Amino acid sequence: MSGTPEQELLSRTALGTFRLNGQFLAVSEELARPAGLTAAWWQVVGAVLHEPLPVAGIARTMGITRQSVQRIADLLVTKGLAEYAANPAHRRAKLLRPTEAGREAVRRIEPGHAALAARLAAELGEAEFAETVRVLERLSAALEAVGAVGAVTEP
């Protein structure tokens, strides 16, 4: 590949991230399946476990489109895993919250999730695992800071 060293680093970072995304999606599907969830359903229910959120808020947190979250949220409500509640801050943007069945489904995932986390921590070491999280969070913040998310422009 031709280009600057920075372009090479960006390309390698992107390719590595795409591969990680695929790996995380595959393992998430595997963990979620016995609980009757898909990875996407688990992701949306997980986003509202601690506090109800509007669909747009879930989408911002997850970095995906509002329409994708809306489709999944509606499915979760139909399946009885989540419900819509009134939003005191915005009449039209209802809040999504898990039902007890949704919470129970996520609880069934926790043992496999904990086992995978322990195996990764053992493979990487606690300090390197924490550093990985820090670097990924820093990269995400840097992409937002340079305006790369939503509008790629010439320098």
Rank of each mutant, 00 (worst) to 15 (best):
M1E: 10
G3E: 04
P5I: 08
P5A: 10
E6P: 00
Q7W: 12
L9T: 12
S11F: 04
S11Q: 09
T13L: 15
A14H: 03
L15C: 10
L15D: 10
L15I: 13
G16R: 09
T17L: 15
R19F: 14
N21R: 14
N21P: 01
G22W: 07
L25P: 02
L25R: 05
V27C: 00
E29A: 00
A32V: 01
A32W: 00
A39N: 01
A40R: 10
W41H: 11
W41R: 13
V44I: 08
V44A: 01
V45I: 15
V45Q: 02
V48H: 03
L49S: 12
L49V: 13
H50V: 09
H50E: 14
P52V: 11
A56M: 05
I58F: 04
I58G: 04
G63N: 01
T65L: 13
T65C: 04
R66V: 07
Q67P: 00
S68D: 09
T78Q: 14
T78F: 06
K79Q: 10
K79Y: 06
K79M: 04
K79S: 08
K79N: 05
L81K: 11
L81V: 09
A82S: 08
Y84Q: 15
A86M: 06
P88R: 11
P88F: 06
P88W: 08
H90L: 06
A93V: 01
A93R: 15
K94R: 15
P98R: 02
E100N: 08
E104Q: 13
R107Q: 13
R107W: 10
E110I: 11
H113F: 14
H113D: 03
H113W: 12
A114F: 01
L116A: 00
L116F: 02
A127D: 14
A130D: 14
A130H: 11
A130W: 01
A130R: 15
V133F: 09
R134Q: 03
R134S: 02
L136M: 09
E144K: 14
G147T: 07
A148M: 14
A148S: 11
A151W: 03
T153L: 13
T153F: 09
